[in-house]
Design a protein around this nucleic acid. Sequence first.
DNA 1: TGCCTGATTGCCT
DNA 2: GGCAATCAGGCAA
Length: 198
Amino acid sequence: MSSDRLEPGFFLRPTEELARSLIGCCLVNEGAGKRVVGRIVETEAYLGRDDPASHSHRGVTKRNRSMFGTQGTAYVYLIYGMHLCLNVVSGPEGVGEAVLIRALEPIEGLELMGERRGRTEVHELCSGPAKLTVAMGVTREHDGVDLSAGDLELRSPTSFGVWDEDRPRLHEGPRIGITKAADLPLRYWLEGSSWVSR
DNA sequence: TGCCTGATTGCCT
DNA sequence: GGCAATCAGGCAA
């Protein structure tokens, strides 16, 4: 369905605004021959060199290279030596801003998600940035891929059933798990959702 | 080269 | 609530 596709230019907006706009969008992985889908309910904005909590704060390295790429591509990185996190690159090339996807509402392919996670409780499938990468089958191979078209893809909020809120009500608050710039309200989540992390 | 820290999770008491 | 697992980057020596 072409109507499920994000409009060209969707990613062309300030990072904080993109982080809010991504709430409600669907993340789809059709890579393994089976489809898994989750709706984004929680995000965090990470800004450029001026944001001490951002990986881009100290410039380009081998690990964060894709964070400086084109808006709408993926930045996938390994944290704590064992967990992968998925970001949507934001801003013009070379700026180094991104939106961390922190939690999804499972929509489709819950059985496969459960297999990958080794858990069956639906609230344990995607309720954290590293949980959802496992459930969605995100790997380091996805680092740098275009998220507007491909086997790992973002779709509009109207995809995969009813999204009945024209303007989803959002909360904002401090980002989680960081020590620097911990006071900035750059975390966004869907009000009343039971699918957010924590 | 060596040591410390980190955008986390799950299992332990 | 505490804590281990496990590795890439940053920084000091």
